[in-house]
Nucleic acid binder design. Structure first.
Lengths: 337, 337
DNA sequence: GCATCTTTCCGAAACGTTTCGGATCGACGA
DNA sequence: TCGTCGATCCGAAACGTTTCGGAAAGATGC
């Protein structure tokens, strides 16, 4: 296939390459009639700007990259799928392209470095940050543009994140308002920043209440199930459980059923719903209540933040806080007795 | 970050840009000492060839694209994840980059067209072809390079595929050798090329045998389960079932158990194992036998085929047939009575 | 001593775009 | 009549690479 260039449009219309470029670029020192003729010719020839030529000149490729590991366990796959699909779709919509770089060396900065230095990539989307994440530290060190989905409060970069503390706080208040004093929070791994923020939110909100505790574990069905069993069979079982996500909550429900108990009669359950495609709070029996945030909003915010970083490399870091809502659900009710 | 260019290396070493380029490019009219000095300087400066400049000159970006739909059901996700990860890892390994383009309009040729005409992409990987797949037809029409994972026997393009007919054939022979005459084959959707090839292989291999039948359905746990129930409760139930993949096979196992029967005492089960990450034939109880092919081999073949197409646009189409093996398993035994 | 061959090197052009700095021309006011 | 202004246009340079065509210089054969 032979591709049309500005020169072809120039020849076709008799208008200079410069002016053709400016007409297509939407500059305002172009006569209306000229612009019309250029656009007509461009459409006729099926013109698309050559990204490599443009990129060579402007220094921007329009490509964003994510570096992800080759091996993943089943639960990580599910959320990574959602994340990658969402981000790619959002960038596609905006006329940028996502490069998905799968490698066994996903934490090796040289992978990022080589991708970036070759000029084929404008920057990176980093997901699932750890505390003092080496990727973030080193990308920042080298001045490579990136945005993070999640947050590390220990440093200032471009983050797009939920207000995790507030989110847990609002679930705790909802429970306390109904009279719950003994609340257990099934949190994620204690070393991850988002789980730490949630723990802070929990501690702050329960202050002075009864027997409240945080349990840390991977956010899976199994962990939700096992922790719930041990809570229910331990002494002084909680009257309400807050689960970090719907997968854990499903485990909680299963454990309650197994123990011959009922939600919410014997135990109120709340969970945060990430908006993952195949996890519907209303598919729970009974429908589960708690906080909810739309993942789609995250991708859009992420892409905006990225654009901002690319177009203004030296602008100060920006933290975007995502909205969340509280949803009632039949899984919450005042404690017994 | 300031990126080093050939000019920088040239200045650093006092060697012309041309010769620096040739030294790094591995040409043989370069003095050994010159090459050493160039490589040293390149390493020192952290030089990486600018892909946009190279691409502008050579007409190749080194980017491969996959266009995939935004919405997918759960079972499609699982295999697509495996496919995308495998392909990306393989191209990464080879120094190319995978562009994952997620869009609601995944069958719209104009998506492919615009991606390609902008010069940002050398070609496409197409997966899950249908009969007379419009993507294939139109890509071929426009002379856009692509390779297909799977096959449409009605036309000649670059395909990488299993020999689906032979694969089913070998499972049927294994069952017949043990004395099974009534064999049911739980195949994929009847309109998909791979399922048609498998049906042909089945028909050919059972010729003259007892009560053999093919049942078409989506290749999911549920379908495997439901079809098995109806087979077992119908008249003249089969003595062996062949499942199209391990997900279906898991459904078969569940149904057998539910019916109070046992594998292989009451029913022999065979399945094709695609080599998906989280489906292990030996995790079945009893371990399931059947054919198996290593998915990893597919990605490597796919990438090779793509390279070949790109470097020789006018070379004839090539069909790569992937290896498979037959694995014994405790799920197969001669029929009762 | 001269032509020829090898080895090693280099200048310049080209890929398609953006953009800087000015050119052209008709209108308009003084 | 002249200078100025606004609207519209364009030539040329630059981005970093590859590659074509040939140049320089030393070795070789006669």
């Amino acid at each position: 296939m032979v591709m049309a260039t500005l020169k072809d449009i120039s020849k076709e219309t008799g208008i200079s390459i410069t002016q053709v470029s400016r007409a297509l670029g939407g500059f305002d020192d172009v006569n209306a009639e000229t612009r019309r003729r250029v656009e007509e010719a461009a459409a006729k020839l099926g013109y698309r700007a050559n990204l490599m030529a443009r990129g060579l000149k402007t220094g921007q490729s329009g490509n964003v990259a994510m570096v992800v590991p080759r091996q993943l366990d089943a639960s990580a796959r599910e959320v990574l799928f959602e994340v990658v699909w969402g981000i790619s779709a959002e960038f596609s919509r905006r006329g940028k392209r996502l490069i998905l770089h799968v490698t066994a060396y996903a934490n090796d900065i040289s992978v990022y470095d080589q991708l970036y230095r070759s000029g084929g990539v404008d920057g990176f989307v980093v997901i699932g940050p750890t505390v003092n994440d080496p990727r973030i530290v080193q990308l920042a060190d080298r001045g490579i543009p990136f945005v993070v989905h999640g947050r590390d409060p220990s440093c200032a970069h471009d983050f797009v994140d939920l207000d995790n503390a507030a989110l847990i706080g609002s679930m705790v208040s909802a429970a306390r308002k109904l009279g719950h004093a003994d609340i257990a929070f099934l949190n994620g791994p204690a070393d991850l920043p988002f789980a730490q923020a949630r723990a802070r939110g929990f501690d702050q909100a329960v202050k002075g209440a009864g027997d409240c505790r945080i349990l840390n574990a991977p956010m899976t069905f199994e962990a939700g199930h096992d922790l719930t069993i041990s809570l229910l069979t331990g002494k002084n079982p909680p009257s309400a459980i807050i689960a970090g996500n719907l997968m854990m909550a499903a485990g909680v429900y299963a454990a309650v059923k197994e123990a011959g108990l009922q939600v919410p009669r014997d135990l109120s359950v709340l969970a945060h719903d990430d908006g993952l495609e195949h996890y519907d709070p209303d598919a729970f029996d009974p429908p589960i209540g708690g906080t909810r945030s739309e993942l789609g909003a995250a991708w859009s915010a992420l892409a905006s933040s990225f654009d901002r970083r690319i177009t203004h490399p030296d602008i100060e870091a920006q933290v975007t806080e995502l909205e969340f809502e509280f949803r009632q659900g039949a899984s919450i009710q005042p404690p017994r007795e």
